[in-house]
Write a protein that binds this DNA or RNA. Sequence first.
DNA 1: TCTGGGGTCCTAGGACCC
DNA 2: TCTGGGGTCCTAGGACCC
Length: 419
Amino acid sequence: MLYAGGNLIALCDCNNFFVSCERLYDSSLKKRPVVVLSSNDGCVISRSDEVKAMGIAMGAPYYQVEGLLRKKGVAVRSGNLLLYSTVSKKVMQVLAKFTPSLEKYSIDEAFLDLSVATISDPVSYAREIRETVLRWVGVPVSIGIASSKTLAKLAGDAAKKCDGVLRITEGNLESFLNGTPVEDVWGIGRKTSKKLEGHGVRTAMDFVRRDPLWVKKLLSVRGLITQQELQGHPRMPLQLEEQIPKSIQVSRTYSEPLTEFRDVECAIIEHTLKAGKSLRRWNLATCAMSVFIRHGYRHHGECEYLTDDIYFNNPLMSDIELIACAREVLRRIFKEGRRITQGGVILCNFADSNFKQRELFDENNLFAIRAKFERLARATDKINEHLGKRAIFPASLAGKDGGKWRPARKMASAGEIRI
DNA sequence: TCTGGGGTCCTAGGACCC
DNA sequence: TCTGGGGTCCTAGGACCC
C-alpha cells in the first residue's frame, strides 16, 4: 500500500464541545453528567462521556429520554450558540499559533498542516497543542495525525478512546483499517455503508482493497477520493481561506403551531432580518430568495412544505427590499387553516454587494432610492451591534415580541452568556 | 403533544441547440 | 415524415457533513 509519509495533517477536535462550553461557564457541571439540547429543546445534540455510556444516542428526541436523564441526575441545558461560537474562536486562535496552515472545518474542529521541517516529533507537538488549548481556553481536545484528512479524522476518533493523541503511520495503517467498520469512515454515510455491505465490504480495509473502477462506478468520484485518502494519499487539500457561502438559510421550528397569517409573517420577517444581516456581513447581495413554511409534524407522516421563489435582476441586500420580497412570497404560499410548525428563508445566487446595474429607463430614480435603503441597512447593523439586537427594527414587527413562535429554551444557562 | 439548523457537492435527466 | 450524434446548461433530488 502506498503512503504519502511526507504529508502530515492533524485533526483537532474539541471533546463533547457544547457540553465542554457549558462546563466552562458553570463549573459545577464538571462533576455532573450533562446534555445539551437543540433549538426548541427538541433533541440531544451534545453529551458528556457519562451520558454516552448510558446509551443515550446523539440526536435522541428529548421527550423520549427525559425520564431517564432525570433519574440519572443528568444536567440538561438548552443550546447557546453564541457562547459556543465565542469559545470556538478562542480555540482557533490558540491553534493558529501552532501552524500557519489551518482550516477551520467546523465550530469544533480544525485541520492543521504539520508538514513543517521544524517539527521533529509530531506526536509530542500534538500533546503540546492539547495541553495549551486546555490551559488557555479550558476545553479538552483530541488530535489525530495522518497523511490525509480522511485518515486524520479516523485517528482523531481513535484518539478520543486513548490518551487524546493518535498517529496513523505506514506501519500501523493496515491493522487500523482492519479494525475500522466502513460506516465509521468520513464521507461514507448510512446509505452508502448499507450499499457497500451488500457487496461484502464491511471494514475500511475491505473498501481499500476494492478495484478503484468498481468503487467509482458504485459511488462516483467522491467514493474514489475517499478510497485514495484511506490509502494515505492526500486528495483533499486544506482550505486555508474562509469560504464565501453559496447560500444563507435561516429557519426555525416554532414553539407552537401558528395559524394566523400575521404571526407567520412576523416570524418570516425575523428570519429575513437575520439572513440579511449575515448577507451584509459577507459583503454580498442576493439574486434569489426562497420562502418556505411547513405544516404538521415531520415524524407523523402528515407534514407538507409550501414553498416558492423570487428572483431579482439587480442583486439586493437591504432589509426593506428583502422583507418586501419575503412578504410577497409568503402571501403566495400561505393557506388558511393550516397549522404552521416551521418556517424559513433561503438566499442564494450571490453577487458582490458593490455590483450595481442601473436600469435603462429609471424614471422613478429607483437606483438612488435603493442606494439609500442599502445605507440604511448598514447603519442599522452598526447601531444594533452597539445598542443590542432590537434597538432598531421594522415597524411591521411593532408590538410583536415574537413570543408565539420563538423556540422554547426552557433550560438555558442563567442569563445570556458573554465570556 | 413533544424529533434542530445550516451547509456542500454530485448526478441524472430534461430542454435546447447544431 | 423520419433519421443520428453530440454538446451545454439548468434544476431537483440524493447523500453527506457538523
